[in-house]
Design a protein around this nucleic acid. Structure first.
Length: 650
RNA sequence: GCCGUUUUAGCUCAGUGGUAGAGCACUUCCUUGGUAAGGAAGAGGUCAUGGGUUCAAAUCCCAUAAAUGGCUCCA
């Protein structure tokens, strides 16, 4: 007999060799029916695998991420089975579960393609196969037998995978007529896969390497219930409605022009209003935090980037140099602001008393991103960083780091960004040669970052080997409407540039010391930040940021004079808004203002004119009653002030 | 950069080889209306660009550009 400890701490006894299914069945029939897999001492396994010794056991259902992953992984096998049936001779790559569903990489062979038009028949086949209730059967296979199998089958990708596997760790899973090299685990059988949807088809390099052959990747998602699929698709629709590219066009925030160039956004008046509010907000916060604003040119000589090292690393992939009438003279559009700031540092000798020196600039930079990378405002070729460089002594790194985190959190709070993760990127301890800087300094900086993040209680993930070659960093990652992750705020330690630019300060003992440099940008880029902000609030910007905070809507032409007085009063009070003098009925004006997501609609007619009041309608809420104009202004200004102090989450 | 898809009026989109369409927006006129679309008329297109096939191309083929879903990349 063995002891099985359940998640609630209770212990039950089973025959040695009992399966996860047996455990589930002993708890309840429903659990047994819904069980997708089992976690045994932390390891996710097939439900049917015998448990041979005392263990902690957790039954995995659809509600558990690992249960979903098992479900989707098995679905990927089902997709492969369907593809083999429909496209004989198809070669299979890998087919893992992912965050939302699964994919399978396939090689159809010369001249054959798959398009979304083919999806219905593949989906139908999958459903048909799923209904057969084929069991997923696990089998341990000796390496030579595995190789023989895939040689016989003629699948080069599986053979490639087998090369990296040792005898004894190779398992096959078979369901129906399909056998795949797979670590597992899998569902008991195919019958729980009820709803199938293939999402899209894309190219993907074998093993993620650009040099390898490009395979066809088919993405799909499956659910145990049709209703869940419908809900998922509805969620995707909602995400599309929030997409900043769509809202940016509808709300007239920004545009692109083929003639101006790909990836070069044009900020329209309303987008500019929004952006400038963010800029002012940040400028104010930075002045309070001891930053000194500077301004530097949009270009810099080639020598600047030779010194910084960027010429060698990125020169060929950048916008190409700007030439002058002077032969041999070349300038580059600046891809970052730091070299310019280093030159500002060098304008005079610096004392340890001057540090930390914090130079801030809303610097517009230009990077020639690969054409396939461009994406709305999140990935562009010209963008403005809310950049700053902090020059400090090594022992000040942690304190400065902490202060920057405070600033980022202040910004996120004012904007209601709660769903972020802080990614700490450290160097790869196995490969220290890749990085510049002394072990001592790295250790100092890496601990400083980790401690600062921990002290601030940031939700962190740590990635080894993700550090830049010049220093470790901390990035604030948020998701867009479609769940894609983007880096917004970033804080990076840099040992490289101070070295290359030979930056120095005079220490108390009169020796020359090298400062450490921190790059940091709380927004990251204004463009990307605005994109994420748009999706975050679905275009319903917090009042203090809204490009158009109010619209005065006269009931008819007769009240235009009074409406104009109201409008003038609000503009005098520095509110942003518009007046709708069109020859339309009030219902129409309201509808249009609602669609434009204007926070306050001020309706004025006979009643308002006589009493010196406005009828206030709030976006999304409706009529909230009438108040005197001055009272409205005061209440409005009060709300904005509270938001900017972070008292009210936007 | 690579693979797939897309590109028709300002916007959203129909139009599968035979005379370019709709709704909204826009202009003009009527209407002066109290909390989500008042009515009528009008104007608006080198069907992304360049080649090719064809008696005939928005439609079929090729190239280029841009957008888009991924992959790779991201100072």
């Amino acid at each position: 007999m063995i002891d099985i400890t359940l998640p609630d701490g209770s212990v039950r006894q089973f025959e040695a060799g009992a399966s996860g299914y047996d455990v589930a069945a002993s708890i309840s029939e429903g659990l047994a029916r819904n069980a997708l897999g089992v976690r045994v001492n932390g390891e996710v396994r097939d439900l049917a695998r015998p448990i041979t010794e005392n263990a902690k056991v957790e039954i995995l259902t659809w509600n558990d991420p690992a249960g979903k992953a098992t479900f989707w992984h098995s679905s990927a096998h089902l997709l492969a089975e369907a593809l083999e049936a429909l496209y004989p001779g198809v070669k299979l790559g890998i087919g893992p579960a992912i965050e939302n569903g699964f994919y399978y990489d396939i090689d159809l062979g010369e001249g054959r393609t798959i398009s979304t038009d083919d999806f219905p028949k593949i989906e139908q086949k999958m459903v048909e196969l799923a209904r057969k209730k084929s069991q997923y059967v696990r089998r341990e296979v000796p390496k030579d037998e595995a190789i023989a199998y895939f040689e016989e089958k003629g699948d080069p990708y599986k053979l490639d995978l087998l090369q990296n596997l040792e005898d004894g760790q190779i398992t096959f899973y078979t369901q129906g007529d399909f056998t795949d090299l797979c670590r597992g685990p899998h569902l008991p059988d195919t019958s729980s896969i009820k709803a199938v949807k293939l999402m899209n088809v894309a190219g993907a390099y074998w093993r993620g390497d650009e040099k390898n052959k490009q395979l066809t990747r088919i993405y799909g998602i499956t659910f145990p219930k049709a209703k869940e699929l419908a809900e998922y698709l509805e969620k995707l629709e909602e995400a599309k409605r929030r997409d900043h590219r769509k809202l940016g066009k509808e709300l007239e925030l920004f545009a692109f022009s083929e003639k101006v160039g790909a990836g070069l956004p044009l900020w329209l008046p309303k987008g500019t209003a929004l952006r400038e509010r963010l800029e002012q907000f940040m400028r104010k916060a930075q002045v309070k935090a001891g930053y000194l604003p500077v301004v530097t040119p949009h270009i810099g000589s080639k020598e600047l980037y030779v010194t910084s090292g960027h010429y060698e690393k990125y020169g060929a992939d950048s916008f190409q140099p700007i030439k002058t009438p002077n032969p041999g003279e070349e300038f580059f559009l600046k891809p970052m602001n730091c070299p310019h700031h280093c030159e500002i540092y060098k304008t005079k000798p610096r004392s340890y008393r001057d540090l930390p020196l914090r130079l801030a600039e809303f610097g517009t930079v230009y990077r020639y991103e690969q054409s396939g990378e461009l994406h709305g405002l999140t990935r562009v070729r010209g963008f403005t960083q809310d950049d700053a460089h902090i020059f400090c002594r090594p022992d000040q790194v942690k304190e400065e780091f902490t202060k920057v985190i405070d600033l980022v959190l202040y910004v996120f709070r004012a904007l209601g960004f709660e769903d972020y993760t802080a990614q700490i990127s450290l160097r790869d301890p196995e490969n220290k040669a890749k990085y510049i800087g002394t072990d001592e300094n790295w250790a100092l900086a890496e601990t400083a970052i980790q401690e600062a993040a921990a002290e601030k209680g940031l939700p962190t993930v740590t990635e080894l080997g993700e550090a830049a070659f010049y220093g470790p960093k901390l990035d604030f990652m948020v998701r867009d409407a479609l769940g894609r992750k983007w880096q917004l705020g970033t804080i990076q330690v840099d040992y490289n540039l101070p070295e290359r630019f030979e930056l120095e300060y005079v220490a108390p003992d009169n020796s020359r010391q090298r400062p450490v440099m921190l790059h940091r940008a709380p927004f990251g880029s204004l463009e990307r930040f605005v994109a994420v902000l748009i999706e975050h609030c679905a275009g319903n910007f917090p009042l203090w940021l809204s490009p158009e905070q109010f619209a005065v809507l006269p009931i008819s032409e007769k009240y235009q004079d009074y409406a104009q007085q109201v409008y003038d009063r609000l503009i005098q009070a520095e509110l942003r808004g518009s007046m709708d003098n069109r020859d339309e009925k009030i219902g129409r004006k309201i509808r249009d203002a609602e669609i434009a997501k204007i926070p306050y609609m001020l309706i004025v007619g006979e009643k308002e004119q006589e009493n010196g009041i406005v009828s206030v309608r709030k976006h999304g809420e409706g009529d909230v009653g009438s108040i005197p104009i001055d009272a409205f202004v005061r209440s409005f200004q009060g709300q904005v002030a509270d938001m900017m102090e972070g008292k009210v989450v936007a």
